[in-house]
Amino acid sequence: MNRSIIVHLFSFVFYTLVQALILKNLAIFNLAFCFLYVLFLLSLPVDTNPLLLMAMAFLMGIVIDTFYDSLGLHASTMVLIAYLRNPWLALITPQSGYEVGAAPSLRYNGIQWFLVYSIPLIFLHHFVLFYVEASSFNIFLHTFFKVILSTLFTLIAILIVQFMSGSRARI
């Protein structure tokens, strides 16, 4: 238990720094953004207490917001997907069920299950994020385009990280 707290703490700092220093400056055609930090929330153990989950999502959102100068924006979207994550996990439980303390990961549950698990959450996160950020539906299509491309970009980044961190998958 202790070891996993340290690992989570480390990954919290790691995802935040990667997001704030590298991925923030990365926007393909000014349309596709990568919000890899969502993976921190997605890869917390299945049986994490929902209250703790939301608190961590809120904290991470505030830190990311500090770097994006958009106070409350990332925090609200992170809390939203933190709230929906556990019901969604319960809904798509594989036939064998989850092991105690297992993290939802690609290596452990297979790519098909992982895509089903992550795509709706990433899409929802990006959808709310971009429309709240634009704070209007004036440029609806442009924003929607941003949402779709960014979802793809984030998903690809998340898959790459998941493939690379095979040994950590069961922490």
Partner: peptide, 28 residues
Amino acid sequence: SFFTFLGFEVICIWLVIQNNQYQSSKYF
């Protein structure tokens, strides 16, 4: 968990509105 969610979201929305005003949060 729903009420915690609601509480967090209210805080966040309040922060978003605050931040959109010209003179806003000093620290974050």
